[in-house]
């Protein structure tokens, strides 16, 4: 467990930096940019016709159609926008419960920061429901925000400073009691797109049978003496599986993406896993 910012392995991240955030197929909002927006703009992609009205740009009059129908119609094109992207990072102590998990979290956050930069989006980082989101200008700046000393995840909060019509990427281990449907609905509300990324250790997902263990919750939610026998492990795996499938189902139900990333994988493998889940796409 550490309270200092996580140090990401930037050489490894740069080596695997070949992704960007996968955009949804539906139009999205945002400032003028490079991605197709939901409104009418000046891109080259045709969108629709409408009847000419005084003041319309005569360059967009479809003269061929006027010759055929003697009606003045205007060709409408899609607008190009820079999407708003809210990257929600869980900075609770559970994200750094071991060094492996902290290292994996740093790699994942760095990879997502690079992907956000390649996307050309207006990226804001949210780590706390109380603090204002922080813009991400350089991928390396994300390190400063990865101080995992909170007693609870920001995702558990009833309200997060998410922007309307924003793309949302939520990174957490989701190891807190929750209702998956309610959680995904809350995170997706008024958003354009949502991706949930669950980062856990392999040992958290599939613990091994051991002898009696004094379990201590890293976020101070109690302690428990327990014999980790076959039955206990089986029960735990079942509950963890239900938690993950609940999140997956909840995300699928609202058209969001869900990706499970083991913390002890390499950055490249993490990128592939996220791409396979539709969270990232090749740049």
């Amino acid at each position: 467990m550490q309270a200092t910012p996580i140090r990401a392995d930037w050489p490894a991240i740069r080596a695997a930096d070949a992704f960007r955030i996968a955009m949804p197929r539906t139009p999205i909002g945002g400032r003028s940019g490079e991605r197709l927006g939901s409104g009418t703009g000046s891109s080259l992609e045709f969108q629709d016709y409408r009847t000419y009205a005084p003041g319309d740009d005569l360059r967009h009059v479809d003269w061929a159609a006027y010759a055929r129908s003697d009606v003045l119609n205007i060709r409408l094109y899609r607008e190009e926008v820079a999407p708003r992207l809210d990257l929600v990072l869980d900075v609770s102590r559970s994200m750094v419960v071991t060094d492996d998990k902290a290292r994996g979290y740093g790699a994942l956050a760095g990879l997502l920061a690079c992907a956000c930069a390649r996307t050309g989006a207006d990226v804001r980082i949210i780590t706390s429901p109380a603090n204002a989101p922080r813009p991400l200008t350089r991928p390396e700046d994300i390190e400063q925000l990865l101080v995992c000393d909170a007693a609870a995840s920001a995702i558990e909060a009833a309200h997060l400073p998410l922007r309307r019509r924003s793309l949302r990427v939520v990174v957490s281990d989701f190891l807190f009691p929750h209702d998956p449907d309610a959680l995904t609905n809350r995170l997706a509300r008024d958003g354009a797109w949502l991706a949930l990324i669950q980062l856990t250790l392999r040992d958290e997902a599939e613990p091994d049978v051991t002898s009696g263990t004094h379990l201590i919750d890293v976020e101070g939610n109690g302690e428990l003496d327990m014999v980790l026998d076959d039955r206990a492990i089986r029960d735990y795996r079942a509950r963890f599986s239900r938690l993950r499938s609940g999140l997956s189902t909840g995300a699928r139900r609202i058209g969001a993406r869900f990706a499970y990333v083991p913390a002890d994988r390499s950055v490249r493998d993490m990128g592939r896993a996220l791409a396979a889940a539709g969270v990232l796409e090749s740049a």
Binding site: V97, N221, M226, V227
Partner: peptide, 22 residues
């Protein structure tokens, strides 16, 4: 008295069941 080796984890709630001990 059972005095097990401590282990710090995330998500203790996943372990909590009605049967802690054999």
């Amino acid at each position: 008295r059972r005095r097990f080796p401590p282990r710090t984890i995330a998500g203790l709630f996943l372990w909590q069941t009605g049967r802690h001990l054999p």
